[in-house]
Design a protein around this nucleic acid. Structure first.
Lengths: 343, 343
DNA sequence: CGTTCTATGTGCATCGTTCTACAAACCTGT
DNA sequence: ACAGGTTTGTAGAACGATGCACATAGAACG
């Protein structure tokens, strides 16, 4: 490697010499530790400012904290994660912490790699979004590093905190809204995954859907179609569903991304939305608002989820050992795609 | 912080003891350095495997490399970046390197923070996408850490490599395509930024647009409208443009994200696309393919851009000091939004 | 059988922090 | 004035790698 920045780096030692104090003293000031007088603190602060000192993260990682939080996303595709990130960053605004993202690329191997990479790099904590991992492994992971999980229901977990919206309720809202608008034959398009019962967000939404359908006396119309996450697979599933004999009047999609594909397929098949078909998504991402989509969706406030997860994580890093499980109440945002239809 | 992993960590020393060799020997094996015999290498490898050794990134950062590459994105919104990331990861597949993402959140302050954070964390190199930074600062940054830039034209820069598509050509293709389809009054919707002349991708696209319009004898129709990146601002600009007296027959948008908003506004105003208006985007993101958008766009192959940038960056880390500037030839993907219209 | 050379393996200083143990200085209250 | 306590500052040993400088053992040669 080309030689860079030899001895010109401003270290804690440089600052100490400049301020005329010991290295330990500077370290104390840096860490806001006990045992520094006001004047000394000021003198050190001034020197740091003057010299443009920046702490060396790797060196910190050797001993104490790195002040780095890892965020693991299942993929960057889903625009919902943008909201979460902005919440996380907002919570970290006036702290020393910085976030670094890792992308799980949906594949399980990549997910494990990202996790290992973050542990190797001594992240102080991890915010894990939509983990695809059985609870024992999550516990094992939480034993190694403080962790908060978003979008995974495990209300009894003690080793880590969780932040969720009430997916069961959200799905209920969708069904009630559609029923109220006059739809009866309502199908659900969900995610095809090796199911880790009850924990997955999609499972909760499915349960909510089923329950609400039953409560509305629509048991005979219950239909859940599973599909992989790829556009091609989603389109195929939607096409099959819309061409089938008992064609649904409305489709509830587990996430907006899927709903957009359904709109596309409906469009291709010459179906009007609404009119020939009602569509509802989940997450209320920015694309819902576009007039060509006008997609009714459930807002679970990614901002709040992100903010809370960062808050909980820092609490845990600071020493809390009991678990907290934060739940946001979702809310339906009605748009054109689920307008009432005369039948 | 709660006490975790005390002495149970497997370090290079543990491996050395297990294999019955010196610490230095293990280090040599790790680094593939000169001066290790085959048998010793095997013995050490076996021990590492057996003990599940993982190198401590922070410790490495103190002396040598961290094997971590930073990728800086201007925002996560733009789905185009997904493609870039998958290219980057593909290039790093069988190497020791890992990527970590930082998000610039569009704001300049955040951008600087992310850069600092990455330097503090001793990233071996940085892939900087769409930097908002004048050349002298880029040079200064490149002096501190090996760097490759995507989406910023500075073909004479020596301190860093660049990877781009030919934005000038791409814009030309758009205009030629629209002209061929019968459009004459073609406006461009571009990004409002403190311009760093010529370097910005948008500037290049503007220049290409202007040149192509002139070449087509449409000088009198040249019109570039600038707007900020927020949905609200884009919508306002589009609305104003579409309501103006010399209303354009077609709009060329500097990126798909903007084009989707334009489609939305046209939709709201009751205009048909195509028919009343032609729209073309840039980047050929997944959303273009949805039937409700059917957006004609320029494909600049984010995959290739990502792959090349990772390749170049590693070359630079390994010692190359001359600059390379890689340019991809863009290609137009025609969809419904720019269909010929009888006039 | 020395001498020189090469290949292989080791010892240890080093990187920039943190933090424990300790020294020094300063208060108190008798 | 002195024991005891508190506050403020310092010395120096870690942390887990890297990589230079060196030791040692054979090999090759005259």
């Amino acid at each position: 490697m080309a030689p860079r920045q030899k001895s010109d780096r401003v270290t804690i030692k440089t600052v100490a010499e400049d301020a005329g104090v010991s290295v330990s003293a500077v370290s104390k000031v840096l860490r806001d530790a006990y045992g520094v007088s006001g004047p000394l603190r000021e003198r050190v602060r001034a020197s740091m400012e003057k010299l443009g000192y920046r702490p060396h993260a790797a060196a910190r990682g050797m001993r104490g904290q790195t002040y780095t939080l890892g965020v693991i996303l299942p993929d960057i595709h889903n625009p919902f994660f943008t909201d979460i990130m902005s919440g996380v960053n907002a919570a970290l605004e006036r702290t020393q912490y910085q976030t670094l993202l890792g992308i799980g690329q949906s594949s399980l191997g990549a997910q494990q790699e990202v996790i290992d990479a973050m542990i190797d790099r001594q992240m102080d904590g991890i915010i894990f979004i939509g983990p695809r991992m059985p609870p024992p492994e999550l516990d094992a992971l939480a034993a190694k590093v403080p962790m908060t999980i978003i979008a995974n229901h495990s209300p009894t977990a003690q080793a880590y905190d969780t932040v969720n919206n009430d997916d069961f309720l959200g799905a209920t809202l969708v069904v009630q809204h559609l029923v109220h608008a006059g739809y009866r034959n309502i199908a659900m398009l969900s995610l095809d995954l090796p199911p880790i019962e009850q924990l997955q967000v999609t499972t909760q939404r499915e349960l909510g859907y089923r329950q609400a359908m039953e409560d509305a006396g629509l048991r005979q119309y219950i239909k859940v179609v599973m599909s992989e996450q790829t556009p091609r697979a989603i389109q195929a599933a939607a096409r099959q569903l819309l061409r089938s004999r008992g064609r649904p009047e409305a489709i509830f999609c587990w996430t907006d991304f899927v709903a957009l594909e359904v709109l596309s397929v409906a469009h291709e098949l010459g179906m009007k939305v609404p009119g020939d078909l009602g569509v509802v998504g989940y997450d209320n991402t920015t694309y819902c608002d576009l007039a060509q989509n006008a997609l009714t969706s459930i807002d679970q406030s990614g901002q709040v989820l992100g903010l809370q997860s960062a808050r909980l994580l820092i609490e845990r890093i600071k020493g809390r050992t009991t678990a907290e499980h934060f739940v946001v109440t979702p809310r339906l945002v009605a748009r054109n795609s689920s307008q009432p239809v005369a039948r």
